[in-house]
Design a protein around this nucleic acid. Structure first.
Length: 483
DNA sequence: AAAAAAG
């Protein structure tokens, strides 16, 4: 049996690994570390939760052991798709490099340049970054990548999903072709294959069995739910979520609740808080300090419910999540696997419950296709079927305790979804966002056959300029038409 | 009926 001691790591690294409580490498670690230490390129095909991070951090620290950093010329570079993942890699680096003098800088967006600049100027051994912020530093002439000896790309398939591949290719070209490359992806999409063919040389390929999608450690269930009335869908769905949480009782130590949209994340978090649940939102529109604080609180157990967009679906290592609730069925089947994979980790048991409204049935079918299993149907904890709910519906607001037994009385009205206090986004906002988009990636191509263009507005004429100024009555908000 | 990433 292989132990870490057999892998040829620097003794300082080895003792840090031992201190962290590990003796036996995971398959990806056992496979990737020896060739990496031998200076070879590595192509690792592995999901998160397989010990992937240590499989590049440990050899990297060992290889960088000799030599020291020069100003503005980092000796190695790790690229991750999200800020949280980059921060997680940085934390791993700190853990395993604690007996060395190696230095690092974390270059992510949403925080000030100042500290990052100071570190780069001084010189760091390891740069851990998201692509956008890294290129930003480079373009401002603060950074030279010609000294990079080792480059790591983590979660490449997610980079692909997020449109980062052109950035990654550009960064590759800024580093010396003699560099060593360690490249990790959960899947080998054709586009990923093309990149590895271009930038890796004779890589050692290590493929680790996909983490069982329906791990026995995760109990799964789907709750089908149909609104009694269209205009009640949102608030009933939140009531159902509360009932599901309450139904789990003490067993639900903590949970991540996934929503498909950022606005929904905010609404659900606000609603749960209103009902006395210890909940906080996390998604990409929140500022970085809040994201960091919220995640830290959830990790250390001081926050019980994390309401999240898919920013938290992949890669994040949060030990001890007892439950995952999918408030929405994810529209990409893969994401389901990633989301529920946040629970049932490290030998612990977990439970994943998914709420499915009729509109989402096709996505549910796609998920069951992917995992090649039927997810057990679970009866809705809200009493009775649709008919019973319809009958009860009239006095919904007057029947407090029934739906949320654990909620503190008096039951506040769930007004989280009421017209927002902040102004709704206008087409103009969206156009401004698109203008900001860099590289014009998301820009409309061609003339799109519009013959009513307004002179002087280029391709970015706000849509409302071509419409009547008189607002149409909105069928969604006119109660009378609901039945 | 999407999220993420630069500011």
């Amino acid at each position: 049996m292989t132990t870490f001691a057999d892998l040829g790591l620097d003794p300082k690294v080895l003792s840090a690994v031992t201190d962290a409580g590990y003796t036996e490498p995971t398959p990806i670690q056992a496979g990737a570390i020896p060739p990496a230490l031998a200076g070879r390129d590595v192509l690792g095909i592995a999901q998160t939760g397989t010990g992937k991070t240590a499989s590049f951090v440990l050899p990297m620290i060992t290889l960088l052991g000799r030599g020291r950093a020069r100003a503005r010329m980092p000796r190695s570079l790790v690229l991750a798709p999200t800020r949280e993942l980059a921060a997680q890699v940085a934390a791993n680096f700190d853990t395993y490099a604690k007996n060395t003098k190696l230095t690092k800088a974390l270059l992510i967006g949403g925080v000030s340049f100042k500290e990052q600049d100071a570190l780069i100027d001084k010189g760091v051994d390891v740069l851990i970054a998201t692509p956008g912020r890294l290129l930003d530093h480079f373009e401002r002439g603060k950074l030279l990548l010609t000294g990079v000896q080792i480059m790591v790309v983590d979660e490449a398939d997610r980079m692909l999903d997020m449109g980062f591949i052109p950035d990654i290719e550009r960064i590759f070209q800024l580093t010396p072709f003699t560099r060593q490359t360690l490249f990790f992806s959960a899947t080998m999409a054709p586009e990923i294959e093309r990149v590895t063919n271009t930038f890796l040389s004779a890589p050692e390929k290590i493929e680790v069995a996909r983490r069982a999608t329906t791990a026995e450690s995760i109990e799964q269930g789907v709750v089908k739910y149909t609104a009694t009335r269209k205009d009640r869908q949102a608030s009933e769905k939140r009531a159902l979520l509360r009932a599901l949480i309450d139904g789990e009782g003490e067993k639900c130590k903590n949970a991540i609740i996934f929503c498909n949209r950022k606005t929904e994340v905010d609404i659900v978090a606000k609603s749960l808080k209103k009902y006395g649940y210890d909940a906080a939102p996390i998604h990409g529109d929140l500022d970085q300090s809040q994201r960091t604080r919220t995640l830290a609180a959830f990790r250390d157990g001081s926050l019980r419910f994390l309401i999240a967009s898919d920013v938290a679906a992949r890669g994040l290592d949060i030990p001890d999540v007892s439950h995952v609730f999918n408030y929405d069925v994810p529209s990409h089947a893969e994401d389901y696997v990633h989301r529920i994979g946040r629970t049932g980790r490290a030998g612990k048991l977990g439970k994943a419950l998914t709420i499915c409204v009729p509109h989402d049935e096709k996505w549910l079918a796609a998920i069951e296709d992917l995992v090649e299993k039927e997810i057990p149907r679970v009866e809705s904890p809200l009493k009775g079927g649709a008919k019973a709910r319809r009958d009860r519906d009239v006095q919904d607001d007057a029947a407090p305790a029934k739906e949320a037994p654990a909620a503190p009385a008096p039951r506040p009205r769930d007004t989280a979804a009421d017209p927002a206090p902040t102004a709704p986004r206008t087409p103009r906002d969206r156009d401004r966002d698109r203008d900001r988009d860099r590289g014009g990636r998301n820009r409309r191509g061609g003339k799109s056959g519009r013959d009513d263009a307004v002179v002087g507005m280029g391709d970015h004429m706000p849509a409302f300029l071509t419409r009547s100024f008189k607002p149409k009555p909105d069928p969604e908000t006119t109660e009378e038409t609901a039945d």
